[in-house]
Design a protein around this nucleic acid. Structure first.
Lengths: 210, 210, 210, 210
DNA sequence: CATGAATGAGGCTTCATTCAT
DNA sequence: AATGAATGAAGCCTCATTCAT
C-alpha cells in the first residue's frame, strides 16, 4: 500500500506529509510571533520563521484570519482540556477557582498572546466563532457546576470573568500583573458569594498605587 | 487705541481662531479614530478625518504621542472632575461605586475609547505619565476613602478595578457589555467586602452565555 | 519529455529572467541617477526610471546601501581590470600615468558618477569597505611599482591622486574639465618627480580662467 | 527716539536695524548649518537657529539660493582679503603657496563648508556667478604673479588648483586629510616648476594607503 | 515688516496579496 | 504543490513654499 502506483494515475497521498509539516510549522511560527507582537503579525515574517515561502502560507491559509483562527484552535484546545480535567477531579467551586488561576498562568506564559485571546472573548459575532464558542462553553460549564452547589449566589456572565482577568493581563508591561490577576480571581469569587475560607489570603495588604 | 475696531468683531488676532479650530478638530478626529482602532491610529487618517493636511497635524503634534496625550488629557479631565465632585458629596463607598458606574458610562459613551484609556491603566512607566498619574491618583483617593470607613476589607490595587472593568469594555462589539460591566462593579465591591445592601440587585439572573 | 519546447528557447527557469532584468535595470537606473545627484538618489526615482515598483527595488536591495554598493561594484570592477592589464604590459610609471588618464576617461564617461566614486575615496571607515578597498589596493599597487623604479621620489598617498583628480571632475558642468584633469595628471606626476620627457606636453598655455 | 512716531505718518527708519540684525543672524545661522550638513540645509532649521520665523527668512531671501549666495559672499570675502594681503607682502610664488595653505586651513576650519565652497569652483555658469567670479579672479591673480616671475613653468588653470585641493578636502571624515592636502600643495607647486627648496619637506615618506 | 499656520509634494519603508513559472 | 517575484496601497515623516493676519 505504500507503493504509489505503477500506472500513470498517481494514487499515493504522500505529498500530505510535507503539507502537514508545513502547516504545523506555520501555526507554530504564528503562535510565537503573535506572542511577541499580538495579532498584527507580518505574514511574511511568519512564513520566514516557518521556513516556507509566503505563497505556501497562502495556500494553507488563504485568508489571514484562517491562520489566526488556527492558532486560536490550538490555544483553546489546551484550556478546554484542562477544564475537563479539573471538573472531573475537583469540587466545583474549587475547580472553577483553579481553572481561573490556570487561565492566569496561561496568559502569563503567553505574554502577548493575551491580546490574541482577547479576540476570543469578544463574543460570537466575531470572525472566530468556533474557538470563541468552545471557550465560552468551557467557562460556562465550570460556572454552572459551581452555581449548582448553591455556593455561588450572585450572577455574572461567565465569560465576563475571563474578560475582567484579561483586562488586567492585557496591560502587559505591568510587572506585577500576575499577582494582581490572582487577587482579582479571589475578589471575583468572593463577590460571587464563595466562602471566605475557600480563598486563602496569601497576600495581605498590597500597596495602593503602583 | 490698541483696539483698531470698536465693534464687537475682534480684528486683531484672528489667525489663532483657525489654528485652534484645527487643533480641536484634530483631537476630536483622533478621539473618534482611537475609539475604533486604539492608539495605533493612522495619523494620515486622523488628518483626513479632521479635514486638514497631514503636515498641519504634524505642526500641532510633532510627535505622535503628543496627539494621543492630548486626547487622554481631555478624557481624563472629565473623569477626575467627576470624582472630585462625588467625593465631596457622597458617602465614601457610595462615591466609589457611583464613580465606577460613571466610568462604565464613560466607556460606553466613548465606544472603544476604552482601548485608548487602557493605555493609561498600564502604569507609570508608559509614555503618558501625566494623564496616567492623574487617573491613578483619582481612583486611589476614592478607594482610600472607602477603605478608611472600615467597610471595605479586602485589598486590591485600585487601578486593577478599572482594568477589570476595562477588560469587559474592550470587547466593544458585544452589545450587552454595559449591563455586564455594571454587574461587575457590584461583584467587585462585594468581593472587597462592601455590604450587600449597598448593592441594590437591579438585574437578577442574567443568561449565562451570550 | 521534460522539455516542452524543442526549440532553443529554454522554458524551465524563466522567472529568473525577469528578476535579473529588473535587477540590472535598477542598477543602471541607479547609476544614471547617481551620476546626476550623487549617492543621495531618491529610491523612488530610481524605481520609476527602471520601470519597476518601489517595492521591487526593496526586494532586490533591502537596504539603500546595497543598491549603492552594487553600482560601485560595477564601476570599480572595470577600473581594477584595466589596472591589472596596464601593469602587466607597461613600464610602471607609464602604467600609472596611463591608468590615471584612464581614470579621467572613466569619470568623463560617467558624468557625475564622480561624486559617487568620491564616496569610495573617503577611506575604509565608510560603509562601502569592499569596493573602497579594491580601488585603494589598485592605485596602491600602481604607485608602489612606479616608486620601486626610483623614478618617483616625492611621496603622496596614492588615493590622494584620485581625490585630486576627482576634485576637478566633480565640477561636472564645467565643459573643459577633461583637459584640465589630464593636465593635472601630468602636473602631479611631475610634482612626484617623474621625468619631464615622460610627459609629452600636448597642451601648451591654456587660458587662465574659464 | 525710542518712540516710534507721534503723528499718523511713520517717519522713523528704525525697523532697518531689526531687519539688518535679522539678516546677519540668518546668514550666520546658515553658515553654521551648512558647515554641518552642506548646502542641503533645511531652511526651517536656519530660521529657527537664527531665532526668526520662516516667513522672515523668506522676506530676506526669497529664493533659497539667495541665502546660500549670501553665505558664499561672506566666506569668499575673507579669502580674497587674505590674498590681497599676501600678494602685497610676499614674494609671488611664496604668496601663492601661502595662500593655498591658507585655503587648506580655511577648508579645515569650516569642515563641511567645503562642500558649499565646492559649488563656487564649478565655474561661472552656476547660480552663484558673483562669488564664483571673485574667487576665480583671486586665484588667477596669484598664479599670474607667480608665473610672471618665470619660476612657474607648467601651465594649469588656476581654479583647478583649488579644485584638486577641494577634492581631497571633500572627503571630510578622512582624519588625515589636512596633511594630505598640504602635501598636495607642494606636489602641485613642484609639478608646476617651483624650486624644490621652496618646498620645505616637512613630512617625509608617508604611508601609502590609509 | 514680521509672524505662525497651512499646504502639496515628495521621500522612505512595510505589508498583504497576486502571478507566472 | 510550491516558489520567488512583483505589485499597489498605505503609513510615516520632512520640507520648501504661500497665505492671512
Amino acid at each position: 500500500m505504500e507503493r504509489p502506483s505503477p500506472g500513470p494515475t498517481p494514487s499515493g497521498r504522500r505529498p500530505r506529509a510535507d503539507a502537514a509539516r508545513n502547516r504545523s510549522r506555520l501555526v507554530a511560527a504564528a503562535r510565537n510571533a503573535m506572542a511577541a507582537d499580538g495579532a498584527n503579525v507580518s505574514l511574511e515574517r511568519v512564513a520566514r520563521d516557518a521556513g516556507v515561502s509566503i505563497a505556501t502560507l497562502y495556500r494553507h491559509f488563504p485568508q489571514r484570519d484562517a491562520l489566526i483562527e488556527a492558532v486560536y484552535q490550538d490555544e483553546v484546545g489546551a484550556l478546554v482540556a484542562a477544564a475537563d480535567d479539573l471538573r472531573a477531579r475537583q469540587e466545583p467551586v474549587v475547580a472553577l477557582r483553579e481553572w481561573l488561576l490556570l487561565f492566569v498562568d496561561f496568559l502569563d506564559s503567553k505574554q502577548g498572546m493575551s491580546e490574541a485571546l482577547g479576540t476570543l472573548l469578544q463574543g460570537p459575532d466575531a470572525l472566530f466563532r468556533d474557538s470563541s464558542d468552545r471557550l465560552a462553553s468551557c467557562v460556562d460549564a465550570l460556572v454552572r457546576s459551581a452555581r449548582a452547589t448553591g455556593r455561588l449566589t450572585t450572577a455574572i456572565q461567565p465569560l465576563d470573568l475571563l474578560r475582567a482577568i484579561g483586562g488586567i493581563a492585557s496591560v502587559s508591561p505591568n510587572v506585577d500583573w500576575k499577582a494582581s490577576a490572582e487577587r482579582l480571581v479571589d475578589v471575583l469569587l468572593l463577590g460571587l458569594g464563595a466562602d471566605a475560607d475557600l480563598v486563602a489570603d496569601r497576600s495581605p495588604h498590597p500597596g495602593t498605587t503602583p
